[in-house]
Write a protein that binds this DNA or RNA. Sequence first.
DNA 1: AAGTCGGTCAACCGCACATAG
DNA 2: CCTATGTGCGGTTGACCGACT
Length: 409
Amino acid sequence: MGRHSCCYKQKLRKGLWSPEEDEKLLNYITKHGHGCWSSVPKQAGLQRCGKSCRLRWINYLRPDLKRGAFTQQEENLIIELHAVLGNRWSQIAAQLPGRTDNEIKNLWNSCIKKKLRQRGIDPNTHKPLSEVENDSKEKLPTPNKNNEKASVGSNELKLGDPTSMHVEKFPIEFSCSSNGNNMTSTPQTQDFLLERFAAPHDSSTTSCRPSNVVGYFPFQKLNYGPNSGLSMNQSTSLFFNPNPSSSSEMISEFNSQTVLPTMSSSLFPTPIHVKASFSLPFDNPSSLGTRNINRVQNWEGNCFSNNAGSSNGSNSSVEVQSNNAFFEGNIFSWGLTDCEESNAVPQIRTLEGEQDDLKWSEYLNTPFLLGNTMHSQSSQAMYNEVKPPTALLAPEPTQTGFSGFRYVC
DNA sequence: AAGTCGGTCAACCGCACATAG
DNA sequence: CCTATGTGCGGTTGACCGACT
């Protein structure tokens, strides 16, 4: 409904925040929580609009923010997620604890884009630049403003637009190993994937959706160059093998070559909502008979340890967005105490009975678990290429009791 | 020393969605 | 169903800073 009403008021400060303003906001939210943002500036004695306060809190004052430069792992993960999610920065940020969408967006625009181009990869499509150039020559898109806009940051998928989606349908199967239990779906079509990512809660807009989902899922054959630690193991492309000789073979391949559950979850610190489905009703997501499993595991043991030390810990009164299940329940907390209670086995919570309440959009909270499950192994492979054996990602119980993987430098 | 340029980052803007009344 | 309000998101802008000329 347009701008926030408070923004119309005059005499509100704009621009950079002073330390005094920061202190006021921090003190207020620490004591009272933010509640309704529009009332925060008034209550906190700030001459700002609520929106500005919210932004300042989320991007700067939140105690759980991770400061400092992005690690190579984080950059790699951002690239991988971007290949799947496009410019959905908030969803990418959800997989990077302590990082904000703004931060990631800035990093992408200022740094990663450039790096990818230097490596001959188009940052928008994640295709080789040469291929993109060829495509553009072949397709000769009609120049109109809409197209231009769509091409910006254009991991976009125009649903129902045959020119933007040359998708061959073929059956695929998912096999998700969780704590030793395999959940294998019945054959599914690629529609599921397309719906999974391209038809989220917002079906009215087409922005920021992945294009060429089939050919350029990151786990398929992305290659970000040998020097970047981003090269992919070609064997991982089997996941989308359009002609599996048999489903059991495919599953077998998948399990034997690609499934490293702990590795996968190590890449996703946010609890992954694994919703393996049986006989998935594509056209009626709400009726999905889903099994919901939250898996929580450390991504970088050091990362969590550090955060636990620098944050308010489990006693924090800070309110965190509840849609990030990372902070919900007792699955995980930043607090060191909770860390100590963890054990080396990934904690798994089955959310039986909750499926009826699930929103389809929740599926987007898992930016392609299975793909990343697979890709995570590739990540391991890629680190194999660039790191000496002693530097491999390896399961390692940390002092705080977290399993997960410590990246040994 | 002064000016220019490019990169980075914080913040703003405008839009869309969710929800309460 | 409609409207007003609150919230979240992505794109964009502008300030700042360091490197370079």
